[in-house]
């Protein structure tokens, strides 16, 4: 009877030794390379700090003007511009200006990193089925494994702070842009590709004159998703020391400050809506060639 109800698990001591072994091995790795890895990321840290300071040092009226100008450049809509201005003014008035800037700064930097790394990866995936079979499960892993699981080794390696926070955000937020770049390139009309071939386009020329431009709407959908997922991670990132609206939410949870939680949560939501609408409108504008159809 016992054989069937008790799962034949590994011996207690063996199991403990196994876990201990893994922990020890990683600690050894941290001791040996931790400093080198930290040094490697030091320029990134400097950049993050510089960017955040820049945003905080900019006079708030100027900052609002800059952000509104960016929104207009992206969305070409005065309604969106007005909405953005109101969101920023209200957030500032409610005492969240600094935290909003900090959050915007980390979101912008992590989105840029995701784009810079993600698009080339998407291109590589689209070029070879083998790369796709290898990369796909990695992306699945990044999206499904609870972020706390990979927070452990990151914190062990890099401690807490902005860089590990940024890494956690990027790991979670990068898959959409990779996936949709891959998908977008694979969906490009075969007839048009053949035409490019017939005119003697090299693989590089094909990529830049046909594949990327035609994949752009999909790539943009990916970037939009990446931004949204990065925003979803700000509270988790706050757990390992990223300052901003997320850390205030965390404080509110720990101390049961309802109003603080609501305010900061609403600010994150408002930023998310602005980012989402602007990037969607921008993505739509990129496809203006497909709007007018001959009657």
């Amino acid at each position: 009877m016992g054989v069937l109800t008790e799962f034949p698990e590994m011996g207690r001591t063996d199991l403990r030794d196994l876990k201990k072994g893994i922990d020890e091995a990683f600690r050894g790795f941290t001791r040996a390379y931790g400093e080198a890895i930290e040094d490697f990321f030091f320029p990134l840290l400097k950049f993050l700090v510089w960017f955040e300071k820049l945003m905080l040092a900019t006079p708030w009226p100027l900052m609002i003007v800059i952000l509104c100008a960016l929104v207009y450049a992206g969305a070409r809509s005065w309604v969106m511009v007005a909405g953005t201005a109101i969101v920023l003014l209200v957030a500032g008035y409610l005492g969240m200006w600094e935290d909003t800037m900090k959050t915007l700064s980390i979101i912008s930097v992590s989105t840029m990193i995701c784009i810079v790394i993600g698009i080339p990866f998407g291109i590589l995936m689209a070029k070879s089925d083998r790369t796709q079979t290898i990369v796909r499960p990695i992306l699945d892993f990044m999206q499904t494994v609870p972020s706390f699981v990979y927070l452990i080794p990151i914190v062990m390696l890099l401690g807490i702070g902005r860089v590990p926070g940024l890494m956690a955000v990027c790991i979670y937020a990068i898959p959409p842009v990779v996936r949709l770049t891959n998908l977008g390139i694979r969906l490009v009309d075969k007839d048009v590709l053949e035409a490019a071939d017939a005119f003697g386009a090299s693989p590089r020329q094909k990529l830049f004159t046909v594949q990327l431009p035609l994949a752009l709407p999909n790539i943009f959908a990916g970037i939009n998703q990446t931004i949204m997922m990065a925003l979803a991670m700000v509270v988790v990132a706050a757990l390992i020391g990223v300052q901003g609206l997320g850390s205030e939410v965390l404080k509110a949870v720990n101390n049961q400050y309802l109003a603080l939680g609501i305010f900061n949560g609403a600010a994150i939501l408002a930023i998310a809506i602005v980012f989402d609408r602007v990037s969607q409108k921008f993505g739509k504008r990129l496809q203006k060639h497909s709007e007018v159809i001959h009657g």
């Binding site: 035409a195 017939a198 005119f199 035609l214 497909s290």
Partner: peptide, 14 residues
Amino acid sequence: TAMVFQKFALLPHR
């Protein structure tokens, strides 16, 4: 060579 295609195969974004 230059080629003309049955389904035109123009670049839609240009």
